[in-house]
């Protein structure tokens, strides 16, 4: 298996933990893995990304444009920002909930998450849109978006790891008190795959 995966969002959304779990799943199968992520000042409310590269023959943790197999977009605007990195036949799982930057709130301007999603529908054939806000509400925590998106990517087959493999690494990497809520996020991703919350585009 050879995969380039990008996780992108806004600082604090849990992209880094999600990338660590993917890497852990690869390590368990003894597949070489490299990753890179935004650290430092930009983490504070800024755009953040993680790159995860899995497979033999990787020299650097960085991903070139047009070579990502999968993008996990934690935020629609950030997903559009990273779109040039997606392969022409690459897949994307994106949360539809937009996060307004402080600058937009200050200037009274706003940007439209719906417009971003509409644009992605035009551009990406393998697109999964997740209503992250409703899903997190139903699951019971605003902090499970990362596991939800991982679950959705696993269900679609784009991640290359199964729900069961994700459960295993969650068990190993997270404190026990967080297992249940994250398992619920994975189950939710599986059960809701075909409902309105996961509007699966033609793949």
């Amino acid at each position: 298996m050879n995969k380039n995966i990008i996780l992108c969002g806004v600082g604090g959304q849990g992209t880094i933990l999600a990338s660590k779990l993917i890497a852990a799943a690869a390590m368990k199968k003894d597949i070489p893995v490299m990753s890179a992520e935004t650290i430092g000042m930009a983490q504070r409310g800024g755009s953040v990304f993680s790159y995860v590269r899995i497979g033999e023959g990787i020299c650097s943790p960085m991903i070139a444009r047009g070579t990502a197999d999968l993008i996990l977009g934690f935020e629609p605007g950030e997903a559009v920002r990273m779109l040039p990195y997606l392969k022409p036949d690459g897949q994307m799982v994106v949360s539809s909930r937009a996060i307004m930057p402080v600058t937009a709130t200050l200037s009274g301007s706003s940007y439209s998450g719906d417009a971003m999603i509409a644009y992605l529908r035009e551009q990406v054939r393998g697109l999964y849109v997740v209503d992250g806000e409703q899903a997190c509400r139903e699951i019971g925590s605003p902090k499970v978006l990362n596991i939800l998106l991982l679950g959705a990517a696993a269900e679609s087959g784009a991640l290359g790891f199964t729900e069961e493999e994700l459960r295993e690494v969650i068990k190993e990497r997270l404190p026990e008190k967080f297992h249940e809520i994250n398992f619920r996020a994975l189950s939710y991703a599986r059960e809701q795959k075909e409902t309105d919350h996961f509007r699966t585009e033609a793949l």
């Binding site: 930009a42 409310g45 605007g77 307004m100 509409a118 644009y119 035009e122």
Partner: peptide
């Protein structure tokens, strides 16, 4: 920066997120 050739919708302008 990037405009795929086949597009019919122009890319909406992206939010700017300076660190705060």
């Amino acid at each position: 920066a990037s405009q795929p050739s086949s597009q019919s919708v122009s890319q909406p302008s992206l939010p700017v997120r300076p660190p705060v």
